[in-house]
Design a binder for these strands. Structure first.
Lengths: 343, 343
DNA sequence: GATTAGCACTCAGGAATGTTGAGTGCTAAT
DNA sequence: ATTAGCACTCAACATTCCTGAGTGCTAATC
């Protein structure tokens, strides 16, 4: 793929992409010359456009329509053409204003962040919450509910909290629950959740616990407690997608909304972003998810210290305002990182 | 409104409604006679239909189309005609299978319930979670995070848990946090949240706390902790709405999806259901919410003992399978009640 | 008096047709 | 290398016509 492109072609491609981003309509050669003062005749532009089509940057919906940028064109645009705008002052302020911790739990904060991303970009906001399973364990608390039910509250070093209801084999006394919690906190405090699981396995097999019924029970209970896999995603502003003219087609919409509901495909995608810090851009089919074939995803990781916590971003049509949205995602991620920084 | 309706009219109305529920298309006089063996000629049926239209039970989209039931017709149908089906055995089993507590927190359970309702009804499931603010307080736990941040964990008698991050004016020592929690648990345990708030106000004004800085701080902290109002709603299976033929119109869709996102209108509606236990049916405009004008909502309250905890239900087109869905909602609510029963 | 056959009328929706305009590719002149 | 000119294409829109399911009304029938 030698995409050696003359400056003029580049300029025309840029014009087409940027026009298309605002109008959502196929762009013709005359339109271009009218809107952008290139001092070129439509005919010339036509020739260039034909070349760009051969190179795979443009495609025409039908013979006599204008042309539309392909995913490849957007990719080229994002990589080589686009100049990122600074985040506008009002937007910075809006982001700042919405980023506060106090009085909320982390989930709420992230949900609001997702909503913020959607409202500021006019697309759809998405946030992958930190996984409890990647944190450092701090303490567990058992609360006796009615009958054989126990409420387990898990607290991580970074302030994440999970709680589970567990049905035990037999009733456990309140005081015993406290003792069990103390024992477990002693044993497990400061370990990563992976280590916790490992340790639990070891301890259960170790001989000494055989003697102490309570300990054995505690281990069993906590193993249930730590069993669940978690991955929480907040997708807000889904309705914004409906504003996009390209999605008047109901069947396409349906597929997208189903994907938003099922989540797991998206979680997989976001997981990939988790691996490398910073901004990621998936354009159309690049995500390899069929419901996303007409959508782009811009993400950035948010961190605490050097730990990557999660991913946040914006989903919009491939025809998205990259120049504006990329900086917004980037800025928001940094702010959320700062917010969650737990010195 | 003297809806004195002859048995024959009633029968015809029923036929129209039930046909319309499955076909979603205006029903004509001939269609009726063909599909339901009424031993009446189309002409007679036409006369009856004209009467029903005069009474406000039917309306015609245009002169030469068939007729469509009005909200009033559905209301009459639900109140006087319909015979509730038993919940089919497979459905009962499916509901049972999905209702389990263990290893999850209450939020997850309710979210799954909402998903269940949607998948079983093929419409949209909705669940209003119990409000923390209506529960009996059990204990609070403070965990020191970095700097001046404190994580407060509130536990209610019924197993509900809330956690908040609070930014304090000055750093508080770990041991002090423990002492504060003990003090507060002593002071507040067993009170309803409303009482808790009241008590906090009183204590803060009471003279004796003036002497004890720690106590004063504890009160301040907990007041922030108890400040938030909460109302969580789980709406699942939104995409199912897109399957309904009447919603190919995108603008209508948009309005509905926005309402699903904003929630507060729906919360208001569900709150009304909270007031009286049992099944509620809102048909079309009865909900007085404009986005719901073509939708019906069937809800039931779920309880623990004699406390109403929350509301769950199904949202579908007014042309909904009432006879099937009402029993499902009812049954599910009862099962969830049983599940959350904390003896 | 209730029912029904018959008839003239209505109207959405689909097919057939025409028109328009923004677009194209190609060729020859600049 | 650029551009003017021209013949061609085709979606989108408008117009027209046709069909069929539906209606309301009246007069005949049970």
């Amino acid at each position: 793929m030698q995409d050696k492109i003359s400056p003029r072609s580049r300029q025309i491609l840029e014009a087409i992409i940027e026009d298309y981003i605002v109008t959502a309509e196929p762009i013709g050669s005359r339109t271009i010359t009218r809107r952008h003062d290139l001092s070129l005749s439509p005919a010339t532009v036509r020739n260039v456009m034909a070349d760009l089509e051969d190179l795979g940057f443009l495609s025409s919906p039908h013979t006599s329509a204008g042309r539309v940028p392909t995913d490849k064109a957007y990719r080229f645009y994002v990589d080589s053409i686009l100049e990122l705008r600074k985040v506008a002052r009002e937007e910075r302020e809006e982001i700042r204003r919405h980023c506060s911790l106090t009085g909320k739990d982390i989930g709420e904060v992230l949900k609001e962040t997702s909503r913020l991303l959607s409202s500021i970009s006019h697309y759809t906001g998405i946030v992958l919450a930190p996984r409890f399973t990647t944190t450092v364990f701090r303490q567990v608390e058992f609360v006796k509910l009615g009958g054989r039910r126990v409420l387990a509250i898990l607290i991580a070093e970074n302030g994440l909290v999970q709680n589970r209801i567990i049905e035990t084999d037999e009733e456990i006394h309140r005081e015993d629950l406290v003792r069990m919690a103390n024992y477990l906190n002693e044993l497990l405090g400061g370990l990563s959740i992976a280590q916790v699981k490992q340790k639990l396995r070891e301890e259960m097999e170790s001989a000494k616990t055989q003697y102490d019924l309570l300990m054995a029970r505690a281990l069993k209970l906590s193993q249930e407690t730590f069993a669940a896999e978690d991955s929480e995603v907040f997708i807000e502003g889904q309705a914004n997608i409906l504003d996009q003219p390209e999605f008047t087609d109901v069947t396409k919409m349906k597929e997208i909304f189903r994907a938003f509901e099922e989540r797991h495909q998206l979680v997989g995608l976001l997981d990939r972003c988790l691996e490398a810090p910073g901004v990621h851009v998936f354009i159309g089919t690049e995500s390899r998810l069929s419901p996303m074939s007409d959508l782009s995803l811009i993400t950035s990781t948010y961190v605490s210290g050097k730990n990557t916590l999660g991913v946040l971003g914006v989903i919009g049509p491939t025809r998205m305002g990259y120049a504006k949205v990329i900086p917004i995602v980037d800025y928001t991620a940094k702010l959320v990182s700062k917010l969650l920084e737990m010195k």
